[in-house]
Simulated assay, not measured.
Amino acid sequence: MPVFVIFFAGSLLVGFLGRKTRFGFWGNFFASMLLSPLVGLLLILAAEPVNAKTPDSPQTGE
């Protein structure tokens, strides 16, 4: 039982840390529940932030 609690808490932490990535909170949470929190952490490190701006993106609001 304590192992499941640690695994679940780690998955929640991974989801929280990945909330501003492409998969968001729920995607990172479920990925870390299915694989492991360590793999979920690797996914976060490899993921690109959602609001990443590129120089060729069109300007809006003008």
Rank of each mutant, 00 (worst) to 15 (best):
F23I: 00
G24N: 11
G24P: 07
F25K: 08
F25W: 15
F25R: 09
F25A: 02
W26R: 10
G27I: 01
G27V: 05
G27K: 05
N28I: 02
N28V: 01
N28K: 06
N28G: 03
F29L: 14
F30S: 10
A31S: 08
A31I: 08
A31N: 03
S32N: 05
S32E: 00
M33C: 10
M33W: 11
M33G: 04
L35W: 09
L35M: 12
L35Q: 06
S36D: 04
S36A: 07
S36I: 00
P37I: 00
L38W: 09
L38Y: 10
V39I: 14
V39L: 12
V39D: 05
G40Q: 01
G40I: 04
G40L: 01
L41V: 03
L41I: 07
L41E: 01
L42M: 13
L42G: 07
L42N: 04
L42V: 10
L43R: 08
L43N: 01
L43E: 00
I44R: 05
I44C: 08
L45T: 04
A46E: 04
A46N: 09
A47P: 00
A47C: 10
E48P: 07
E48C: 10
E48K: 15
P49T: 08
P49C: 00
V50T: 11
V50I: 14
N51L: 12
N51H: 13
N51D: 14
N51I: 06
A52I: 13
A52W: 13
A52C: 04
K53Y: 13
K53M: 12
T54Q: 15
T54F: 15
P55H: 12
P55S: 13
